[in-house]
Amino acid sequence: MSTTANDHGHDPNRPKHLAHHFETLGQQFDSGKLGIWVFLLTEVLFFSALFVAYTMYRSNYPEVFQYASQFLDTKMGAINTVVLLLSSFTFAWAVRNAMLGEKRKLMLNLLVTLVCAGGFMGIKYVEYSHKFHDGTLWGGNASTIFKADPAEIPAEIKEVSEAWNNPEGKFSVAVRDLDPAFRQKVGVFFGVYFCLTGLHGIHVMLGMILIIWLMMRTKRGDFGPTNFNAIDFGALYWHLVDLIWIFLFPLLYLIT
């Protein structure tokens, strides 16, 4: 190693953004990246507990998941998937901008990523409020009423539930009339749904705060070809949030 690198704070060539405990920018970058990957490992394991819960309930009660999944709006889920993929794309582009020192494009791509994240949460809000309105919630309490198109209700469900036609011509099933054991399990599906999408949503909101922070630093002129670590690491976190949604979407919305 060069002797100048040990000359803390006195080397005129030493970049300001190179922390004193690192020899080179490359070493600083690699260390940070290793740290982020270890953090992402803990994130995967954090989410895995809920994925395991999902797997256990689905493998034991496939008919409950098939029944309850129809209350999720596939179109909304698909739109949200594309919105999140777009935000991942613009963040990956932002990393490229930062590496090339394109400050204006970097700012713009971070802004698009932020708008996409906001759009994702907006759609999530519409979905959640719809579920609160319909009472498709966790726990399967007696006041919950599940509505569905008659054609979409599996025959075995029709057998265990009381049904009548409401003015909209929709087939309604009062959960209090469902078989009690079945009712409890339908509540479990929505429990798993709200836990998984809720934890994911919290990650999206944290990501939005992160992006705002990165935009403020971009405005200050912090980033350039040798100093883009925060952008790169923030993008890695954001891509992981996207990765989790890539699995959540088919697992929750596309059960046939």
């Binding site: 060539n13 490359g26 794309f89």
Partner: peptide, 21 residues
């Protein structure tokens, strides 16, 4: 001697990012 000169990271071509998206 000037660690600011060294190249870090890997820049992905925009066309590749578009294709992946």
């Amino acid at each position: 001697h000037d660690s600011g000169e060294e190249h870090i990271g890997h820049v992905l071509p925009l066309s590749l990012l578009v294709k992946v998206f």
